[in-house]
Amino acid sequence: MRLVSGELIKLESLAEQDTFVHKCHPAIKIIVTFLFIIISVSGGRYQLASPIALLAYPWLLSTLSATPLKILHQRFIWALPFPVFAGIANLIFEQAPLYTLGGISISYGLVSLIVLVLKTYLTVIAVLLLLATTRWQDIFAVCERCHIPQIFCQTLTLIYRYLAVLTDEAWRMYHSYLLRAPRKKAIHFKDMGTFCGQLILRSFDRASRLYAAMKCRGWNSSSSVASKQPLVFSDLVYLFCSLCAVIVLTAIF
């Protein structure tokens, strides 16, 4: 539980850095990420070269933004089972050889599985890189400016913040439980109902206090706390260069 709030804090801390990528306009970074994802997933299911070539993009971006790829890989592991389970059946149903490498034949099924994992990797890492280089409130502010209804943006902002509150409360309750139940390694099934009920009540109470603190400092449903960053020439250069790099990499391979 503490892990979840720790993970959120870690990504938020990364987004506070002061590199060229961090300084770029959030809208540009969202556009680049969106287009990168579209290009990544639009390749053929047996086209291995294209996703491999696109691996250069996250590597380059993480270097430019001083974001350790190791941290992002740790998060990607959570998403890995999904493409593996989705593609594992291909190994059985598509056994015809596609390539032969040093006498070992590589089947269509294996290639499609690898492509699926690579595409998931590129998609997840692109989103994580966006989160690690852009503050969450700036992302929601761009959504607001793109005429996504304000109520959705505000709700998402509050849910994001509420997640940390919920996990924090859960962590406290969990440890308080374990300290008084030394023989138990986790919450016992018979206590789970009470635990969850109390967690909801406590986190609701805490969220209400937090909301009151926000209202006391002038927040209302039409407030936006994101800074209004103007679009500058370097942002357009970044957009142009990123798109060129991705298109060239895809075209060559």
Partner: peptide, 19 residues
Amino acid sequence: DDQLFMPTVYDDIAFGPRN
């Protein structure tokens, strides 16, 4: 903890004036 909720202390102090 009920009052500080923004990612950084700077943002938290800036929250009111921005609003």
